[in-house]
Design a protein around this nucleic acid. Sequence first.
DNA 1: TTGAAAGCGCTAACAC
DNA 2: GTGTTAGCGCTTTCAA
Lengths: 330, 330
Amino acid sequence: MKNVADLAGVGVKTVSRVINREPHVSEETIARVRRAAEQLHYQPDIQAGNLRRADRRTDTLGLLVGSVANPFSAAVHRAVEDIALERHVAVFASSLDEDPERELSSVNAFLRRRVDGLILTTIQPSQAYLGIQLDQGVPIVFVDRRPHGIEADTVMTENAEGASGAVEHLLAMGHRRIAYLGDDEKIFTARERKRGYLDTLRRAGIAPDDRLVIDNLDDEEKASAAVAHLLALDDPPTAIFSAQNLITVGVITSLRSAGASTRVALVGFDDVPMAALLEPAVTVVAQDPASIGEIAARRVFDRLDGLDEPAQEFIVPTRLIVRGSGEIRP
Amino acid sequence: MKNVADLAGVGVKTVSRVINREPHVSEETIARVRRAAEQLHYQPDIQAGNLRRADRRTDTLGLLVGSVANPFSAAVHRAVEDIALERHVAVFASSLDEDPERELSSVNAFLRRRVDGLILTTIQPSQAYLGIQLDQGVPIVFVDRRPHGIEADTVMTENAEGASGAVEHLLAMGHRRIAYLGDDEKIFTARERKRGYLDTLRRAGIAPDDRLVIDNLDDEEKASAAVAHLLALDDPPTAIFSAQNLITVGVITSLRSAGASTRVALVGFDDVPMAALLEPAVTVVAQDPASIGEIAARRVFDRLDGLDEPAQEFIVPTRLIVRGSGEIRP
DNA sequence: TTGAAAGCGCTAACAC
DNA sequence: GTGTTAGCGCTTTCAA
């Protein structure tokens, strides 16, 4: 900036005014400064400016999702990026990988870079450690999972209700032996969906059968193996509720190879790519990751714009997409 | 930092030493400083530090991909993140959306934040505008597409060769009327794949039929419509080479609804989710996005570590995955 | 309309 | 082993 000022024959403050489009600079001076900046390939350093700027904004956001490679997370990410772009805010994106250590290191990495706000998917048992930042006015919005030990804005899918819808659909088709295949109960969404499953069965007067309830399925292979196990039971389930998208894929593979895909009904939680093109097409309770990302990002910016109201929970509805696999009768 | 220093009863430089784990500080002082930092919830501002630090590193990377929501891009992103994480480098991720304006604004957003390096997918006709940064020593690695007007490291798929492999496979199955469905020729990869298709046909002594070559398919719907058009020809193709993953999905949908999916052969470029579970399963020329991301990120860090050799092109091999749709005979 | 001086939070250089 | 001073690139304040 000093070099540009010297070349243009003005003071640094005038260069600053031109760069930031502040008023009270003559047209002629503006032109001279612009020419000098161009000539020297001047790129303003916004971080340096933010050091002294009154609002101390870095125009930067920290986003932590399950994994940037997961379709659900990627859709959340894209929505956040689009909202951020409108405000010239850049997004740091990181993957959680269900690793508590990664949660802490990512959050710290964001904080040390003085992001203006945080959008977080978490796995630590408590997020109380973020209370300090929240008190300091850093907007934090939790996505997909409810935080613990702290009151903050949260955007999530209606997990229990969605799971209930899936199970009710299977019940309506006449099923009584409905298996549950889910993820690690350390994960908030897994607990919620399982709760929806269990509650719905009980409401229907069906005592859940422990042998049909399988947790800790954190990849396709484990899900496939679980299905093989279920099918080998004396009284196998006539329907499966699969509580996560990777699990659903594993279930489909396994049902297919056992020749059971047209016999055993399947409803998955979270949509699966190409679901409509499979045989049978896969009935799912679809989430709306784009809405989740959008609501979260808007909330962060609303708070940055001064919105001061109590933390709120935003519940994003699911949608049952009937495609075939869920309508197989027992 | 000043506050921590005061509370610990030391100078700021000592706090700096403790934070950065520099040597020559007594154990006791370290403990006192840590306690004070803890008590004040001190978070060092790494941007401020980088302002004065000798290497001027921000420990930050700019990544521009097609779209963070696209599975190919997402896999590249994930690989870059993993490499960056090892070095405590945070990644700004943005989507290009095939928009030349977005290329410029993203690159500028990165540069103004003084990223240590850039990994870019581009759409502008020329990237000569980046010559200045390159000369200044900012490592820039282009991914997926070759830049123009500038010599820089580039990591890409063997597009033409992969397309050749697909077409050769269809030829080997006895096909002579093979259609090409591709994206906008403004996109580097689309041009390359088309070239592979045309060259291979000619080498086989087959004159390409203009009616079987369709470009500018930038979404599933257009691809579906193109297939409907092809099937309505007097002498329709017996096989289709689909040059991009979204196009492949559109082709599958359209073949399916026309009842032609077991009659017309299909080989896609870039793998498609669930491809193995479809009927028929989809034969593809698979890319390796994780390798692309990894090679690109390593190259950036090698350059940051002082590697000084001419720009190089890294060609990542494709792999023909035979699954069924490509083995249908005419 | 313009510029000089101070200072944002930190590290480099050097003195003690 | 520890502290002091200058300065990174910019904005703020205030005077001209």
